[in-house]
Design a binder for these strands. Structure first.
Lengths: 350, 350
DNA sequence: TTGAAAGCGCTACCAT
DNA sequence: ATGGTAGCGCTTTCAA
């Protein structure tokens, strides 16, 4: 069933039917009723490709998911982010085009997405420090919003991000307040922007207290369970082991937890662990608030914000938008023994 | 830059340029060279919407992700599945259209996807028992492949699945062989097909040994960390607690682990835990094989298989394809104390 | 208030 | 080996 079929059926012109369906005011109300009803009855929906060709708008947002053939790792929160963004797209009549590309052919993929006219906006995931995609997308002249930021990029661009630096600074201060002196940091890959910022927060907290930053306690890796396990095992076997871990994602934290228990130590007593993941609100898990679930619904919220920002940008182009969301601190378990206090402090500050 | 611009530039007709670009044999080789070079130089890529309109093929595969507004839960392995499928799509020139819909407007969403001509094939995620989507998609006449199966559907349709029943039967037998007599099952929501099959396997193993199935040890829930935590806490506090847990996903297993440690018990000694997640190969985690990573790369592999099956189906329609993959058993940690033996046994059987 | 017709950018058929 | 042209299904001017 296409427009012609439908209009023939109704004895109207395609023009009128189109107008009726698209809410143009000059159509007589009774006509519109008939058209709407017939469309519904015959399950008519305008052909997307024809419509977008005619209007010049793709009504599609592109997400590029770069995956490395070697690592086989995808950020697990990606699904939640997409779910949030997708909600917004559905509400606004946009489609979501997901392009999975090998991370060495990423630039070509952005180029093609735009020159094919497949999308009218792009979301940038997982920005690195000095990320080259930002200059590229500006050059291509396509509206885009970055989920996160890219340090060292001087140009102005739209982003939505949390305050990773401050979050990690505060987490570290918190552990220092509890009396910890050797605090390990298990962070994401060094070229990822979020990891850089989180590292900076950790360092800032130590330096502020006049403490020495021990490079042997800072680790950058892909955030796998095994990363957490290996590092924690080796650290805990040392002479002067850390008494606390700050972990940049819940995945390696699973490994850390295992290592602690293997070492015959008790979390929250012998060793404290604080996890920060890409959440947007404060949570502490004193039993009532399952950490994983909390992170994930926060990320979904982030997806909504980023998608909305891009849609606004497409509708009314203008100056870049910078949106700093509530930074996240996620304290897991009775790991610190102080989760309620932490939450309270954070909520006050907010 | 569009086809007209490019052909004007080259002093050729649009027809010739189009042919050259699409590999038609009747084009003189020197002409093709010139055209290709000019296209590359000007970053020309044919407009997707025009192309698909003209050919009648959308070159797009639809994935529908139903999310519940109330639960805020997305299956975390979804990202990995999509990554695998996306690889295949990229290699074959297909786009991936991801439609996030509220789970109560799912049917309408499939209908619209098809009548809009937006996709020429659909992947069905997370089939339920007697899933109504299967009849719907057959009625719509769109090629589709189900990741999983739907019990009670009599009609023939294409699916790619693991043997959940046998996997759980074997896991349960394994625990029985180790001497466990009270084995708890933490399973997915009862209407999910995979949960039904897994439950059936668990029951079959018990009955085969002439053992009573205790309904008080079987749980169906959304697979959150908290689900695992709560259930395990309450079970372990009982008079006659289970000595083993079979958990249907790694997420609740995190909660189970926490509950065990809270109860002052030791995993692998006082309590055994076996996790089966949606993997396609056998893994045991004796330290060298991080469980989460293993599951995830297996799921990615599943995505590849399902996507390829659909693409084949679109290219050459024919009888439904049924593909049963290696069923998965994932033994985590030194949880059973027998992971290497399990793996060996499974590999032999394969 | 309605309709005719010209595109949107491409492919594919029919000529040459 | 190359070119002219009729669609693909829709929107959007221009006319009536």
């Amino acid at each position: 069933m296409n427009l012609k079929d439908l209009s023939d059926l109704l004895g109207l012109s395609q023009t009128t039917v189109s107008r009726a369906l698209n809410g143009y005011p000059e159509v007589r109300e009774s006509t519109r009723q008939k058209v709407m009803e017939a469309a519904r009855a015959h399950n008519y929906a305008p052909n997307t490709r024809a419509k977008t060709l005619a209007t010049g708008k793709a009504m599609t947002i592109g997400h590029v998911l770069p995956v490395s053939k070697k690592h086989e790792m995808v950020n697990p929160i990606f699904a939640d982010f997409i779910a949030g963004a997708g909600e917004i797209y559905s509400d606004n009549g946009f489609d979501l085009l997901l392009s999975v590309v090998d991370d060495d052919s990423e630039e070509a993929s952005y180029r093609k997405l735009v020159s094919r006219g497949a999308v009218d906006g792009i979301i940038v995931h997982g920005p690195k420090v000095n990320d080259s995609r930002i200059a590229l997308l500006r050059e291509l002249g396509v509206p885009f919003v970055v989920h996160g930021r890219s340090t060292e990029i001087e140009a102005d661009y739209s982003w939505v991000d949390v305050n990773n630096t401050r979050a990690f600074q505060r987490v570290t201060e918190f552990l220092l307040d509890l009396g910890h002196r050797r605090i390990a940091l298990l962070n994401g890959l060094a070229d990822m922007d979020f990891a850089t910022r989180r590292g900076a927060g950790y360092v800032a907290a130590l330096e502020e207290r006049g403490m020495q930053v021990d490079p042997a306690l800072m680790f950058h890796e892909e955030m796998t369970e095994n990363f957490g396990f290996e590092i924690a095992c080796s650290l805990l076997a040392q002479d002067n082991p850390p008494t606390a871990f700050v972990v940049s994602s819940i995945i390696p934290a699973i490994g850390v937890r295992r290592a602690i228990s293997d070492a015959g130590l008790e979390m929250g007593k012998d060793v404290s662990v604080v996890i920060h993941d890409d959440a947007l609100s404060y949570f502490s898990n004193d039993g009532d608030e399952p950490a994983f679930t909390a992170v994930r619904s926060s990320v979904r919220q982030a997806g909504r914000h980023v998608a909305q920002a891009l849609i606004n940008k497409i509708a009314t182009p203008g100056a870049p938008v910078h949106q700093e969301m509530l930074e996240a601190v996620l304290a897991v378990g009775r790991s610190t023994g102080q989760a309620p206090a932490l939450r309270q402090a954070l909520e006050q500050e907010k």
